[in-house]
Design a protein around this nucleic acid. Structure first.
Length: 266
DNA sequence: ATGACTCATTACATGAGA
């Protein structure tokens, strides 16, 4: 089975690209982030015509996550238990559309769009840390008592765990994504028993998953590695390979992130 | 070339992204 994750930066702008990717890569289950549309606006028809089921969680033009699968899609959950809320200025707190779970081909898949944080002194940053802490608390519970659990926590984590996961550490001084607090929140999933399988299979430096649209970041390979896949022990044992599909950043109309693809043994 | 931001909005400028 092939399981992929991709921050698509608007599904309505790139549905054709995603359909072509599914066909070319032979991906069975795709977790999407930043779909940037409400559920009723999601372009489902093309996916269903291609033989995929679709589960979405979108509330507005911000955030939005989805899972598409051709190996079954059951027990959909929009958001996770205990997911922190966020209050935009002048608005009531809401559970944002940043997490959706579904069981696909025997794997409990979570498509995750971790809050950005914006700036270390911004309320969004504390929200980010709490969001990760609460997700970790839930994810720890999903593992207990079931050594055979097949769980994949995949998506845009908005954390660069290693100094070499950004193109120039000095350029990030004082900014989010590289702080010890964020890295500790990310590492807590490993302490809880999950394995970050993309690092295991692609350990080399400068294997980025995101390049800013500005300042020729992609042709210069000045990117960030922030899209990851934490796997439960049984799922990690099944993971035979990982590919970061760098070619998807090329050309007109690319997302600023590329797909990360996991190969799972039957 | 892999190329000089992009997306969505009761839009025409603003907020968000990282």
């Amino acid at each position: 089975m092939r399981l992929a994750t991709w921050n698509i930066n608007s599904i309505r702008s790139r549905a054709d690209r995603v359909l072509a990717f599914l066909e070319r890569s032979g991906t069975d289950v795709l977790a999407l982030q930043e779909t940037k549309c409400k559920d009723e606006q999601f372009p489902r028809a093309g996916f269903e015509a291609a033989g995929y089921e679709v589960a979405t969680f979108g509330l507005s033009q911000w955030n939005g996550v989805a899972i598409v699968s051709r190996v079954g899609l059951a027990d959909v959950e929009q958001g996770f238990a205990g997911q922190p809320t966020f209050a935009a200025p002048t608005l009531e707190p809401v559970v944002e559309a940043r997490a959706i779970g579904a069981t696909c081909g025997g794997v409990r898949v979570w498509s995750l769009y971790v809050p950005h944080g914006r700036a270390v002194e911004d309320p969004h940053f504390a929200y980010k840390l709490e969001w990760l802490a609460q997700l970790k608390a839930q994810a720890e519970g999903w593992l207990t008592g079931d050594p055979a659990a097949q769980i994949a926590l995949v998506g845009d984590w908005n954390v660069a765990p290693k100094d070499t996961d950004v193109w120039d550490l000095a350029a990030f001084a004082g900014l989010t994504h590289i702080t010890p607090a964020e890295r500790a929140a990310f590492a807590a999933f490993a302490a809880a028993g999950y394995t970050e399988v993309t690092r295991e299979h692609v350990p080399e430096d400068r294997k980025y998953t995101y390049w800013d649209y500005q300042q020729l970041r992609f042709p210069r390979n000045e990117g960030m590695r922030i899209d990851f896949a934490y796997a439960s022990p049984a799922l990690a044992a099944r993971t035979t390979g990982v590919e970061i599909d760098r070619n998807e950043r090329k050309g007109k109309g690319a997302s600023d992130h590329v797909p990360v693809i996991l190969d799972l043994a039957d």
